[in-house]
Design a protein around this nucleic acid. Structure first.
Lengths: 232, 232
DNA sequence: TCCATACTTCGACCGTAGCCGAAGCATCTC
DNA sequence: GAGATGCTTCGGCTACGGTCGAAGTATGGA
């Protein structure tokens, strides 16, 4: 029968635990070396090298040589979206990890999805922006509203600059922990970068989770309030 | 590191060629028996049985016993969406099947995606509905517009009935051949069913492709015209 | 009751893919 | 140049998963 594109290839690529761990780690957005990825996968460097070759050949990873290091990143935002959507699906089917672990709550609260904010805080931010009228949303679709530009100007983001890029300004990305959309695209990226610049939050060393400072958290929550439901 | 849900499991599930073929076939929307799926996968019945058990245990398939047959369907619309999105991704990375084959064009033109119309015609239909103002769209998001209900009434679809169901009325689904959105959800399903009822089109036996009758095709194209670009 | 059909289970076979130790390049530092 | 570090390649081992033949269970029909 063999109809359409070959999903088995990429399924198999993602289907190996070591490779899946590497991909999940790279969804954190940072470029990682082969050695680091070997540690993530829990395998030796030789084995990791073979895995990375396969992922690269499959078009999932992009290597960048820098001195004697080889840094790997996800090839594309679409790869990140695929991984996240598979995580969402896996979570919905109960394919969870054996140990929820202490890092799990932090991950659900705020984490990096490729280059933008995800988790509870990511979803909250989008909700708040929609409620405020800065972003229009229909279903899973999102777009900058007419009056949105000035909102972001206040936050400290020049939307005009972002529009110059070929990359879509607004994209919705399904959050695996919240099962709702958060904001991706160049605007999502700019917002997260903005939080880092202001010192509101920082990345963590070996994880995808984002840690807010006490003060940063206060300001973030104030900037993106959630509507208090007055009437059901 | 082991962060988040386990994508390796479902990756591995989809990663086997026989299983992938079965899943792709089931994306055609029809329930198929174990014997039929064995043929699709190009394997014996025993092997297929083992595969189907795994897919069922993984939550991808739903079995239904009927007499001495066991019919399988995709567990959920979300499974269909995952498969389609993986097909889109695979196509974008050039992971195509070795033989494009004669059926390929028909598949690109019009096919069933779980229960709604996909392919060139599916995308055209959504475009036309949006241009006409029956459906609002922002990015990938879609929703029935205020004046949309009467449009569908004219076609012969009672939207009020559909709203009674818990299933979302409008959903966008990314088309792997066109790389653009087509209409899913209960409204997408109702439209396709409507075409079948009117005799405009019919399913094919062993494939996902949808065949329009000459007359049906004419009426379909008339009902869903595409805007002729007057000015760039 | 008896047989045919649909499917599952069992057991054994086999190939592939993952794995690592050891050796080989490449690149940086001193 | 010598030595350390990062990574790749090679070779061989192992195990897991896919495969099928044969036998076993369920259902339907005559």
């Amino acid at each position: 029968m063999k109809e359409g594109p070959d999903i088995a290839q990429i399924g198999a690529l993602i289907g190996d635990p070591a490779r899946a761990n590497m991909l999940a780690a790279l969804t954190g957005g940072k470029a990682l070396t082969a050695t680091e990825l070997a540690a993530v996968g829990g395998i030796t460097l030789q084995t990791a090298s073979a895995h990375l070759s396969k992922l690269e050949a499959g078009g999932l990873l992009l290597p960048r040589k820098q001195g004697r290091h080889r840094y790997f990143t996800l090839a594309d935002e679409t790869v990140a979206r695929l991984i996240e959507s598979m995580m969402g699906f896996a979570a919905s089917r109960g394919h969870l990890r054996h140990q929820p672990g202490p890092k799990e709550p932090a991950l659900r609260k705020a984490r990096i999805c490729y280059d933008h904010l995800a988790g509870d805080y990511g979803v909250r931010m989008l909700d708040s922006l929609v409620a405020r009228g800065a972003i229009d949303a229909i279903g899973d679709g999102v777009a900058l509203s007419a009056k949105g530009e000035e909102t972001f100007q206040c936050i400290g983001i020049n939307v005009a600059d972002l529009k110059a890029s070929r990359r879509p300004l607004c994209r919705s990305c399904l959050d695996w922990s919240e099962r709702r959309a958060h904001l991706a695209g160049s605007l999502g990226k700019a917002l997260l970068a903005n939080f880092f610049d202001k010192g509101w939050a920082r990345r963590t060393a070996g994880s995808r989770s984002v840690i807010f400072s006490p003060d940063g958290e206060r300001q973030f929550l104030a900037l993106f309030p959630v509507e208090t439901p007055v009437a059901a």
